[in-house]
């Protein structure tokens, strides 16, 4: 037997067939993703159509949500979604920034890995656990210790005072924002850490070499360089906050109302859907809920797309500057 045996024609064609089948299969799998995305969008649109056609623009601008009279407006859930996400980011961004800076610039080696792993574990905690914890642990603490303090000290202030008035329910928009903030911190800080690590050492070192302090290097070199990445990370966090359902449903109070106070109960798009879908009777009611879903789909899609775009641009710049 020679070591280089001639390949049988039959064997070769079998090989070619297998290759072709394999290519087709992977291609089909890839197409499936696109088809799924399109299918989801389409069915949302179809399901939402009756409500959208019935209420037209009123659906977006009215606060009323009355299943008995079949009057539905999405303003309260939109408001709740936007406000809780915004507040969550307001709380989460500084903390995540601090975590990321600490991990990349300041932490001793032995601490980096444990803290990094802890962050990844936090990101993996199922949201229902955050919900339970928020309801049974965080809400009572806020109700007893934090909210009275906010009411006493911030309530009397002009302008922002209105946001902190009323009874301390414990659950409500503010509590939901806290829980959301805790949930998005791992995401935002992990992305920020990664983009800070992409800042070239030589750039940092030349600032250090001129006598810049760590503070100055962070603000004048690291942050400007990583700016788009930071924004991308924040957007990813925002995408998650916007769509978060279980945890928010537990702690927001589920009231279709736009309270002037952050301490008041409210609702979000996803919390409304989760709460009401099972008991929704009547086509219009169901369709209104689906329309809420379509809205959320649009908002989240736009945010995530923007985030990806920014991160992509950062990648390209990092590559071109090497």
């Amino acid at each position: 037997m020679s070591s280089v045996a001639a390949i049988e024609p039959a064997q070769a064609s079998g090989q070619r067939l297998r290759e072709r089948a394999f290519r087709t299969a992977t291609f089909a799998a890839a197409l499936l993703v696109l088809a799924l995305l399109g299918g989801v969008a389409l069915s949302l649109l179809l399901g939402a159509w009756p409500a959208l056609a019935h209420f037209k623009l009123d659906f977006l601008t009215r606060e009323i949500w009355n299943p008995v009279t079949d009057k539905f407006g999405a303003l309260a859930p939109i408001y709740g979604t936007v406000v809780t996400s915004f507040l969550a980011l307001l709380l989460a961004i500084p903390v995540s920034f601090g975590i990321a800076i600490f991990l990349t610039e300041l932490a001793p080696v032995w601490l980096k890995r444990p803290v990094g792993v802890a962050i990844e574990l936090l990101a993996a905690v199922p949201s229902i656990i955050y919900g339970i914890w928020g309801l049974f642990v965080l809400a009572p603490i806020l109700q007893r210790h934090v909210q009275p303090w906010l009411i006493d000290w911030l309530g009397p202030l002009p302008l922002i005072g209105r946001l902190f008035q009323g009874p301390p329910y414990g659950i409500g928009v503010l509590t939901a924002s806290f829980v959301l903030a805790i949930m998005v911190i791992p995401f935002i800080s992990a992305v920020m850490r990664d983009v800070f690590e992409m800042v070239p050492d030589v750039l940092k070192e030349s600032a250090y070499g001129l006598g810049a302090t760590t503070w100055e290097v962070i603000w004048q070199v690291v942050v400007p360089y990583a700016r788009t990445g930071i924004i991308g990370g924040v957007m990813l966090g925002l995408g998650r906050a916007l769509g978060e359902t279980m945890a928010v449903t537990f702690v927001i109070g589920n009231a279709h109302r736009i309270g002037s106070s952050l301490l008041a109960p409210g609702t979000t798009i996803s919390a409304s859907i989760a709460n009401e879908f099972a008991e929704a009777v009547g086509d219009l009611y169901t369709s209104a809920l689906v329309a809420l879903g379509a809205l959320l789909f649009l908002i989240t899609f736009a945010v995530i797309a923007a985030a990806r775009l920014m991160l992509m641009r950062l990648d390209r710049r990092a590559l071109s500057s090497v």
Binding site: P200, V202, S206, A207, G209, L210
Partner: peptide, 17 residues
């Protein structure tokens, strides 16, 4: 930081800000 200000450093690859 003061120490490094007294000691200039020029790197292998030119790296202006």
């Amino acid at each position: 930081a003061q120490l490094r200000a007294r000691i200039g450093m020029v790197f292998q690859k030119p790296n202006p800000f």
